[in-house]
Nucleic acid binder design. Structure first.
Ligand code: ZN
Ligand code: ZN
Ligand code: ZN
Ligand code: ZN
Lengths: 463, 463
DNA sequence: AACGGTTCACATTGTTCA
DNA sequence: TGAACAATGTGAACCGTT
């Protein structure tokens, strides 16, 4: 406020200052101190006689006098953002990030969307409110047609008006093989069925109208752990704030490094991510989903709905009225059960392909790659889906080797590593339980007379 | 040192005291303060005028005056243990822990071992130096025959002289089925083969001679992360100490709680553990393995060696010279490949049973339970073992959905949880890769003419 | 450039445990 | 008596908006 002589010295403690903070010239530490304490209700107590001389050394001793001096030299608590303001600011940052990404990442000709900027709130009366207009998130000099809002591009209105189509498609498609499903044609059997099926259908968009029954990802903070922001918006008890703080702190202490499988995996992910240009500007700071990420997730969710449609029709097309599979002369089937079961998966795979076609990233691949991806991934996806319905209840491995394993890991790895390694192994074990059932099912479909007696007893095969 | 009046008040700050510390009556905090700072060379500087009044409040402000007062009231820095003393003390604690565990844990008649106590060093001259001898880890009043050193009990000399036996056993056993393996008899086919096999063999002990090629668990600290204790023994540079501190800090910040799968799993483990009486004295603080745990692990390692023996003989017994399976009229095998493969596992299961019989916990079960356990667990164990040889290299899931998944989790779960959840899911996915191969193998053994054309193309079945 | 918030590493303290 | 721990506050460095 005054002249330039003391503009370099903190009015509170005398440390070197950089400029005005909350209405007065202060150092960085006093700035932080004021932000942290000016709004809090804690009544500090002076350990001396309320006349503490605040210096760079003594400023830590008496918060009471330090805060008092802050106010004295003109710092104003109304320059501190309210909880609400902070949330808004965070949102804004998110949006801008997304815009910037859209600008850098996606070069193809998406629809141009008008930017709806200016969510200005101007709620606080500090005089720092207008540096601006100079720095728009996307370079102002470039033509506005370069500014694409990817959220809008892949929003629900865009993904519209096709569910009916694909629903009815489904009815007529159940008899087709992969090729047919992928290209929308009805050719019966061909050289490469998959390829034919992969040819795009006239309109390749998606659902609207059922959004409510599945989580979708809008631009809010609800996805974050609900211990801050929206919840304790304005002024909750200090206790609540305190515990919120604690939880946050807890959250913050994510262990970062480990020369374990973890880190290797993470490294792999990072590399993968680097190749993913469209999200490449993510700086790793915010935990919230940005818009590009949300958009992708929404796409997946919508595509996934294809898997939720009733399966009856698909199956009835494969099985005759007598409950046997159509067109199979029973006589020549030495091992009918296994073959039938295997063939059943054809139905599921058809549905998977339909789902895949709703994913943009999939549609944009060349057919070569699409086929390869389907071949490589469909079994795994089917298994994943079957796992989704599993309700684990029994506990076979009744001994305490679980515990022993954990102790061993604890003694070998430091800290977090042990815990996560342990959990990973536990996961593996439960995975095996699952796998076990499937293998036994497989065995059940084999003629017992041909199986080793040992195996018959182990698996209770004679019945 | 004076009378009893001020024996309850800290001579430094006036806080309540518990007793003498380093030669004077002090509170806990001043005791810690003195321990931390009396030996360090940092020259504190009084921010005031060297006449600070030290109270419970002000003691934090001036370390210089606080430390000075410590010395003034008679605290002596030579009462602080040297680095070397500390290391010795730690070792002693370890030993004592082990002894106590041996005392409580194993009630059976192990060999009685003479206690080799008295590693006393008596290096410092404070008069508090010999509470010692009084607090022997095991109650001194109990007879010494109760004091068992489990380490010695299950050490390598004990685990001796039987590998030859089981090795030669193996040769003659390859032709037997489970029952035979488990009971040592040679009866060919019986009602319950498993049961017969489960009858104990004459001598059920274990290996010696190959210890070097597998990790064993001896009573040392090497298993701990090597960033403290032994390393910085006496007086290393403060820098080194600092970084060591940092690493420790890092390690320390293991997140403890989470209402996630993690915690649920942990809870389950804890319950299981509670039922495990022999390790029940573990208090959960030290990361090192105690002796009981080491013993169990050693047992597992030894048992596992049964799985490392050459497999040739086992297999040759099943397959004829022509490479076909023995005793199978090819004509009636409509689906020979699958059956053969399944039968192959019989060999592996035999080996598993041999392994299981080397585990005490298994031997001590009733046959009923042994059979049940084998039935329930053998498939999973086989799969686990097959996974051990897997060398993951290809990367099918080439898109960046890994990354997207991680971001989603980060936005949904707080902190560590996200990371571990993510890793668990990644694990699942790689698990699926594995599973995938197996299923495809299974498909390959089915007559292609009976399989849906769609599946044939997906899995490249025609070849 | 100015100035808000955010993050994080860090130092220190005092308490509890063994 | 030391080890381990949890809690706290601090301040530097940074990010992003205006
Ligand atoms: Zn200042
Ligand atoms: Zn004061
Ligand atoms: Zn004191
Ligand atoms: Zn002083």
């Amino acid at each position: 406020m005054d002249n330039k002589t003391d503009s370099k010295i903190c009015g509170v403690c005398g440390d070197k200052a950089l400029g005005y903070n909350f209405g007065a010239v202060t150092c960085e530490s006093c700035k932080a101190f004021f932000r942290r304490n000016a709004l809090s209700q804690k009544d500090f107590r002076c350990p001396f006689n309320h006349q503490c001389d605040i210096t760079t050394v003594t400023r830590r001793f008496c918060q009471k006098c330090r805060l008092e001096k802050c106010f004295t030299i003109g710092m104003r608590k109304d320059c501190i953002m309210s909880e609400k303001d902070k949330v808004l600011k965070r949102q804004k940052i998110e949006e801008n990030r997304a815009k910037r990404r859209a600008h850098n990442g996606f070069k193809q000709g998406f629809k141009k969307i008008k930017r709806e900027t200016s969510i200005d709130e101007d709620s606080h009366d500090c005089d720092t409110s207008d540096y601006g207009e100079l720095y728009s998130p996307v370079d102002q000099n470039t033509n506005t047609k370069d500014q694409q809002n990817i959220v809008s591009v892949i929003n629900y209105n865009e993904l519209n008006g096709n569910e009916q189509v694909s629903q009815t498609q489904l009815e007529s498609v159940t008899q087709l093989n992969i090729s047919d499903i992928l290209n929308g044609s009805n050719s019966a059997v061909e050289e490469s069925m998959i390829r034919t099926m992969l040819t795009p259908t006239p309109n390749g968009s998606v659902v609207n109208g059922e959004e409510s029954d599945r989580p979708t990802f809008s631009n809010n903070n609800d996805l974050k752990c609900n211990n801050n922001s929206n919840t304790d918006y304005v002024n909750i008890s200090n206790d609540a704030k305190q515990t919120a703080k604690v939880v946050l702190e807890e959250v913050r202490s994510t262990p970062v490094e480990a020369n374990s499988i973890e880190s290797i995996l993470c490294e792999a992910i990072k590399l993968e991510f680097e190749a993913y240009s469209s999200i490449a500007t993510y700086k790793g700071n915010s935990r919230e989903l940005n818009d590009a990420e949300r958009a992708k997730l929404n796409e997946l969710i919508v595509a996934n709905k294809a898997l939720l449609t009733p399966v009856d029709d698909d199956i009835s097309s494969l099985i005759g009225d007598d409950g046997r599979f159509k067109g199979k002369p029973d006589a020549i089937l030495a091992n009918p059960a296994l073959v039938d079961v295997i063939n059943l998966t054809a139905v599921a795979i058809r549905r998977l392909i339909k789902m895949a076609k709703k994913i943009n990233a999939f549609k944009n691949m060349c057919q070569e790659d699409q086929v390869a991806l389907l071949k490589g991934g469909c079994t795994e996806m089917l298994m994943l889906r079957s796992l989704m319905n599993y309700d684990e209840s029994k506990q076979i491995w009744s001994n305490s080797y679980y515990y022993l394993l954990r102790r061993y890991l604890e003694s070998t790895f430091p800290g977090c590593e042990a815990k996560s390694t342990f959990l990973k192994l536990i996961q593996k074990i439960s995975e095996l339980h699952k796998l076990n059932e499937e293998v036994i099912n497989c065995y059940l479909n084999v003629n017992p007379s041909e199986v080793e007696p040992l195996l018959i007893e182990i698996f209770d095969l004679k019945h």
